[in-house]
Amino acid sequence: MFIGIDHGTTGIRFASTDGSWFELSRRQARDMSQERIVSTMLESLHTTKNDIELIALTYSMGDGISRITPIDKVENRGIISREGAGVHIGGGTNVYDAIASSGIPAVVIPGIHRHNYGHPCFRVYSHGASPEKLGIAYNAYMSAGDRDFIVSDISSNTVTMGVQGLKLLGAIDACIFAPGVHHGPLDLQAIRDVDDGLMTANDAFSTAGVTKLIPYKDLNALQAALEKNDQDALWAFDAIAVFAAMEVASFLMLIPDAIVFVAGSVGSMGLVVNRMSGLLKKDVIVLGKLSAAIGLAQIARGVHGGKKDILGITVE
């Protein structure tokens, strides 16, 4: 069996190549002992330590490594610093340390950043995507085969990637372009607020999604309002879809014949998919919110089978 662990914004998802999966909230994972995390994983995925061939694990930005690396060779959990984009709770740290001390073979997946972009122009951005996005891209590859493709992951934030000739060209991170539910780029007002000391840059990023302008502050509340045809909710999902489609369209300039995939909790919504498809005049294929964890398990299987690179990312 091969397992993928997706350290996402709202939770930590575990999936196996046998089709099992489960999720822990980041606070649940923070408050569990490391032994309990491992035993819960084994129980929930109906397996034993001896039956696990390899785990592919993600952690935070993944910007401290550029290659897919055995966990015992990774320093500082594969990151430059815990400071930066996003909220630190501690669940991902606890899960990483639990796997590292478990004795189960594991590799750590890097983020997509300045030192491993496939297209030189993307080097203008220090960071393009956190490591679980490589899992989503690989899950898309398993559907697309040798075809070029673009995949947009849309949930708390929006990140879009392009793959040409089985090589990941780069990614447009959440702090650069399209907003998600919670996160988004710093606009002029946010920059002024940071300069005036009203908030940190990370706080500004973490509150720059569509919810900054409406009374609904999380996805569940937004979806409940949508069922009542609330105008704020309709605007929020339309805005997300329009900007996500614009990100995809920017990659279509580089990869005009690409297949388009979407993933994530918002990317799986029919309203968003249909709006994007209409704007792009292309079919949009839904991967679902588990695609990162599933794709990471598929990466683990590929690495164990001897693959030397995953979509252009070197395996150490």
Rank of each mutant, 00 (worst) to 15 (best):
A129R: 06
S130I: 13
K133L: 15
L134M: 06
N139F: 13
N139T: 01
A140C: 05
A140V: 09
M142N: 07
M142E: 11
G145S: 04
D146Y: 07
R147C: 05
R147H: 10
F149K: 05
I150S: 03
I150V: 15
S152R: 08
S152P: 05
D153K: 07
D153I: 02
N157R: 09
T158V: 14
M161C: 12
M161W: 08
L166Y: 08
L168C: 03
L169A: 03
L169H: 10
A171Q: 08
A171P: 04
I172K: 06
D173V: 05
D173Y: 10
D173N: 13
A174F: 07
C175A: 14
I176R: 04
F177V: 00
F177Y: 12
A178Q: 05
A178W: 09
G180P: 02
G180D: 00
V181K: 09
H182Q: 10
Q189S: 13
Q189R: 15
I191F: 09
R192C: 02
R192E: 03
R192W: 03
D193L: 04
D195E: 11
G197Y: 04
G197H: 04
M199Y: 02
M199C: 13
T200C: 00
A201H: 02
N202G: 11
D203N: 08
D203Q: 15
A204C: 03
S206M: 10
T207R: 15
G209C: 03
V210P: 05
K212T: 01
K212E: 01
L213I: 11
L213C: 06
P215F: 12
P215H: 12
Y216H: 13
L219G: 06
A221M: 12
A221D: 15
L222K: 10
L222Y: 06
A224H: 09
A224I: 07
A225K: 15
A225H: 11
L226D: 00
E227M: 13
D230P: 05
Q231C: 06
A233T: 08
A233N: 08
L234E: 14
W235F: 15
W235R: 14
A236P: 07
A236E: 02
